[in-house]
């Protein structure tokens, strides 16, 4: 597990404060290549902050984070290299509304990876097929439904052919009937062996794809283990309360 070649992400005693609020309290974690990690926990427990530290949308203030064996710092080259290899899907999609679906998908491969437009478009169409909306390629994001937009967002991230994919509550902004179509795409992606970190409360999804589930509360990892242990044999009292809540209140 600690073999460098097999390690995708390492957190070593990572801390973060927002002003005086201590939001990450000494996280330590190793994610193996190809591992599928689901992170859950109550709102405000620091899940987004943790996952956003991985591509430095947030900066940690203490400790070390290694991504693909490169330490995260303010060094621009290292950061650029890491962001090329880490794709992210947001709760609110964050597609570029002024660009067509196709252009959303080809922008970064052309500008960041230096692909020729024709190659980038071929690749984009391939991933749009994988997320099952190739026919929407010429439309603009505001013309699509939420579920379609989120699938475009997944395709956009995949077009960079990242080694790691981060998902921050990808289905919580969706109407219930659209959750399925997005989860199906994510399950298929998990089957390709992609390293995935996914913040979600979709227990069915976690049981099906997760190698490991982390339960976070108040900036700490309270418990971690295979999904059946976490969901069926929770040890920590906080986890039991949390599971009770999501089981009984959606």
């Amino acid at each position: 597990m600690n073999d460098r070649a097999e390690t995708a992400i390492v957190f070593e005693d990572v801390h973060k404060w927002y002003g005086k609020v201590h939001v990450l309290r000494g996280l330590s974690l190793t994610v193996a290549r190809g591992e599928r990690l689901v992170i859950c926990g109550p709102s405000g427990s620091g899940k987004s902050t943790m996952i956003r530290c991985i591509n430095r949308l947030e900066r940690h203030e203490k400790g070390r984070i290694l991504v693909e064996n490169t330490e995260l710092s303010d060094e621009p080259r290292a950061l650029a290299a890491i962001r090329r290899e880490v794709g992210m899907v947001f709760q609110s999609f964050n597609l570029f509304p002024h660009l067509s679906v196709l252009d959303n998908c080809t922008l970064a491969p052309i500008r960041v990876r230096g692909l020729a437009r024709a190659d980038a478009e071929a690749r984009a169409m391939e991933y749009l097929k994988r997320v099952r909306i190739p026919e929407q390629a010429r439309k603009y994001p505001p013309q699509l439904s939420g579920g379609q937009q989120q699938r475009v967002a997944i395709a956009r991230a995949l077009c960079m052919q990242p080694k790691i994919m981060l998902f921050d509550e990808p289905t919580s902004a969706l109407d219930p009937e659209m959750v399925r179509e997005v989860l199906d795409v994510m399950i298929e992606l998990a089957e390709t062996g992609m390293t995935m970190l996914c913040v979600t409360h979709e227990m069915g999804f976690a049981r099906r794809v997760a190698d490991r589930v982390l339960f976070m509360d108040q900036g700490e990892i309270v418990e971690s283990g295979p999904p059946q242990d976490i969901f069926d044999r929770p040890r920590a009292a906080r986890l039991r309360v949390f599971l009770d809540q999501i089981l009984h209140h959606g």
């Binding site: 591509n55 947001f90 609110s92 999609f93 570029f96 002024h98 970064a108 991230a157």
Partner: peptide, 24 residues
């Protein structure tokens, strides 16, 4: 989110300003 999506895709400050931020 527009700034964040551009940064997460690896676009530089100049690229994201010129291609994503200013046009909108």
């Amino acid at each position: 989110g527009q700034y964040e999506a551009a940064a997460a895709l690896g676009l530089s400050y100049a690229q994201s300003t010129r291609l994503i931020i200013l046009p909108q």
